[in-house]
Design a protein around this nucleic acid. Structure first.
Lengths: 273, 273
DNA sequence: ACCTGAACACCGTTCAAGT
DNA sequence: ACCTGAACACCGTTCAAGT
């Protein structure tokens, strides 16, 4: 909780806080109480009716969903949980967000994150441009790990996703290549980034056995691996030692190395620069 | 249904069929009927009790789960559905598979798929080896699209996953580089493949609006994109035309191109060959 | 001891009823 | 017309009861 808050866009955070701070219309599900229990008290005893909050906007719901997914993972996103966070009934999430399924909420979340990818200026040099875009994507993926899970199923072609694609095309526009090859270049870079982020995910495995913690599970896995290596059937694995798990710094170094290799290969083979 | 059957390993298919062909112990949930309704008929009228099938083995359950996921997607995998397919009660899936959560079933499925990655011989040339491994991973990912969804969360370090890693390490063992760089090379190639497969997934989007088909949804998306392009705000996107969606052949060409770029970059920058 | 029926605490979504 | 309460048809998993 709060782990990613530092890096979440200010706007999202502000929206979310305003929601939390706003007077919830129905803090817990009071069984549709009558307007005012006039018989049981004097008016002065009763607090004034809560300021009827302005109706939820779609962006409020999307921001809250992103904050929830950042903090507790995609699995925590439930229409009912989201509704509770927003002090609203479940079905209101559908009507206020204007979605007709949970999947469409995910679409909105993905496109919102795509806004983080947009550059103020696209560098003139294609390598600088692609590198900058790649780094941006990586940062957003690490900031919103749930995006990795959605990226295969939730297309990136909402308004912000389209703007991002336009910028990526702009980055390679100057190259003297046919469109198909340009497109391959873009895809090669973007898929590389997505793959790196995907692999980075499995560091934070969820527990397999309900009672035990993720930490215990990782210990068991390490133990299992050590036994395998000790069997002697895995000489190359043994040569690498148990230092295979990597720190965040290692992962960034590996990412940069691979990106350089890829860009170098493109420059040398496709572009000829 | 049957869409991937051609490419599913023979063993899986055979296992699954034998299960289907085997006499289901309880075809539909008879409300725990008494052993033999002796009063209503003569023995000769009653069929002999179904041959008590040998207890399910873990591999039967895993094979059935893989076949189900191949045919209907990861979302179709439900303990209850799987139990029904195997003519068994839900809780029996847990006991016979020896799992303590659905997540562990996924772990077993992933490791089973890892067996498809193993090479009979690792080519001596590092580039040949990595290319062959990359192609193998890609083929398995396309054959089992659900694997893409699991790859971030379900570690690849079961018995078969470990064998696969050993082979990948063997492929680069001959290089005169420090272990960390070798590991970066492996990760760069594997993550590239995973990323390519991830992007290939979003061709087959699931429907967003319950009533409508996925086809209708894609049409709407195309229409939306066309409108965006028509607005004139996306000159580079417009220059590419609507031919952005790609055939399977295009995707394979893009994959191969990018893999060549990456391997070339590695050879030129890291290896110096 | 192994296995499992019934129950529990959830889901997303439908739909009829409210305003 | 917009909004939503209650209901429906599911989940994964617990746990006590069966064998």
């Amino acid at each position: 909780m709060g782990r990613y808050y530092v890096t979440v866009p200010i706007r999202c955070l502000a929206d979310d806080l305003s929601i939390v701070a706003g007077m919830p219309r129905r803090p817990e599900s009071a069984p549709s109480a009558p307007r005012a229990p006039a018989e049981t008290s004097v008016v002065w005893d009763r607090p004034p009716p809560a300021q009827r909050r302005a109706p939820l906007r779609r962006e409020d719901i999307v921001s809250a969903a992103i904050a929830l997914a950042d903090a507790e993972g995609l699995g925590a996103i439930t229409i009912r949980r989201l509704a509770a966070d927003l002090s609203v009934r479940p079905m209101s999430v559908y009507s206020y967000a204007g979605i007709s399924s949970k999947e469409e909420l995910f679409d909105l979340m993905v496109d919102e994150v795509c806004a983080e990818l947009l550059l103020a200026d696209v560098p003139p040099d294609w390598r600088d441009g692609l590198r900058m875009i790649a780094v941006r994507i990586r940062e957003s993926l690490l900031r919103h790990p749930w995006w990795v899970e959605l990226i295969g199923h939730n297309v990136l072609l909402g308004p912000n996703g389209t703007r991002h694609r336009e910028q990526t095309l702009a980055a390679v526009a100057g190259l003297d290549l046919d469109p198909a090859t340009k497109f391959s270049i873009i895809l090669a870079v973007e898929t590389y980034v997505v793959g790196q982020a995907t692999y980075a995910m499995d560091e934070q495995g969820s527990p397999r056995i309900p009672g035990r913690s993720a930490e215990q599970w990782h210990d068991s896995l390490r133990h299992y691996q050590a036994n395998l290596v000790a069997s002697g059937e895995f000489p190359h694995l043994a040569a690498f030692g148990p230092a295979v798990q990597s720190s965040a710094g290692d992962r960034e170094r590996t990412f940069t190395l691979g990106l350089d290799w890829l860009l170098h290969g493109i420059a040398d083979t496709a572009v000829g620069t």
